[in-house]
Computed example of a mutant assay.
Amino acid sequence: MFGDPATELAHTAWPLVPSDALVLLPIGSTEQHGPHLPLDTDSVIAEAVARRAATAVPRALVAPTLPYGASGEHAGFPGTVSIGHEALRTVLVEAVRSLSPWAGRIVLVNGHGGNTATLGTALRLLRTEGHDVAWTGCAVPGGDAHAGRSETSVMLHLAPEHVHLEAAVAGDTRPLAALLPDLMAHGVRAVSPSGVLGDPTGASAAEGHRAMDTMVSAAVRRITAWTVDNRGRLAEPVPGESAHQVVRP
């Protein structure tokens, strides 16, 4: 469903690991996604993007998904499991240090927005240490913030058996920039009792398929260009720029 089994690191015997492999490590979360989406939504999406991208990039292997992230803003909902920024940073740093002796390059494929600050601090350290690592996200251009139409559509495409559309409700539909102060101060539950930030109305598997194609194409494009900003994030390539460089946004 998600890609070629030959790209799975967990299913590969060590003598078959290619020299200087490109390792894609999906980073997700276990957190509430409203009354209609499963707790592993971010992990499912990150893993799917990584697996599909790996089939288009030479010598790529997909490492097992990290299912826990920094999800403290969702702590008011049963089921959420957050390891926090400090623990996540330690896990990312030690994982990359362990991968580096045999991997050529490492890409952290992130599915949860709450992980981004930690990714920035971890990758600044790792790149200072000389590791060839970067990260990229799985955002849907123009999508809503959390458990709305965008994520619901993607999950209807990837795992429809775990989507309960009959329970879907609209949440706070303000842009994330407007919501962020309240989210940071009080958490998601204070802003949206359902946990939804957006509106799932109109979500469809067809829309989700198109969104996945967009996210995978972006990941492949960024990985191929390998233009890394000062937060360790893979940037969109700019026509006329040479690859394999660091840019300062």
Rank of each mutant, 00 (worst) to 15 (best):
178 A>P: 01
151 E>V: 11
64 P>I: 09
66 L>K: 06
121 T>M: 01
169 V>W: 04
142 G>N: 12
97 R>P: 10
115 N>W: 06
197 L>H: 06
24 L>C: 09
225 A>H: 08
178 A>G: 00
106 I>C: 00
103 A>E: 01
120 G>W: 00
95 A>W: 15
249 P>F: 05
102 W>I: 11
82 S>H: 02
64 P>L: 13
194 S>N: 10
15 P>G: 05
88 L>N: 06
212 M>C: 02
101 P>A: 04
184 M>V: 12
22 L>I: 12
184 M>I: 10
115 N>Y: 04
78 P>H: 02
97 R>N: 07
24 L>A: 08
163 V>M: 06
108 L>P: 03
204 S>H: 08
23 V>D: 00
128 T>H: 13
210 R>C: 11
217 S>D: 14
45 I>H: 05
176 L>A: 10
210 R>N: 11
217 S>R: 11
133 V>E: 00
219 A>W: 04
188 V>M: 13
52 R>G: 13
113 G>N: 09
35 P>E: 08
194 S>D: 00
234 L>S: 00
209 H>A: 15
211 A>G: 02
189 R>V: 11
133 V>S: 07
137 G>N: 11
224 T>D: 14
60 A>E: 03
84 G>L: 07
43 S>F: 05
156 L>Q: 14
153 S>V: 07
188 V>F: 02
231 R>V: 13
136 T>S: 05
78 P>D: 08
165 L>H: 00
199 D>P: 00
231 R>Q: 14
216 V>R: 01
213 D>G: 05
187 G>T: 01
169 V>I: 02
145 A>F: 07
89 R>W: 11
222 R>L: 08
152 T>P: 05
171 G>F: 01
202 G>N: 05
148 G>A: 07
189 R>Q: 12
189 R>K: 14
5 P>T: 01
227 T>E: 09
59 R>P: 03
232 G>H: 01
77 F>D: 11
85 H>E: 11
246 V>H: 10
55 T>N: 13
20 D>W: 00
54 A>S: 09
80 T>E: 08
3 G>H: 13
160 P>N: 09
164 H>A: 15
190 A>S: 03
118 T>F: 09
170 A>H: 12
38 P>M: 11
138 C>P: 11
26 P>E: 12
5 P>R: 05
63 A>W: 04
209 H>G: 13
94 E>G: 00
219 A>M: 12
11 H>M: 13
121 T>W: 05
207 E>Q: 15
169 V>T: 04
28 G>P: 04
12 T>N: 08
83 I>K: 10
88 L>W: 00
184 M>L: 14
219 A>C: 14
49 V>T: 01
182 D>M: 12
87 A>W: 04
22 L>K: 05
223 I>W: 12
22 L>H: 14
79 G>S: 04
61 L>G: 03
81 V>R: 06
27 I>Q: 15
73 E>F: 07
24 L>S: 03
38 P>V: 10
147 A>Q: 08
10 A>Y: 15
11 H>Q: 15
215 M>H: 10
25 L>V: 15
66 L>V: 14
77 F>Q: 06
85 H>N: 08
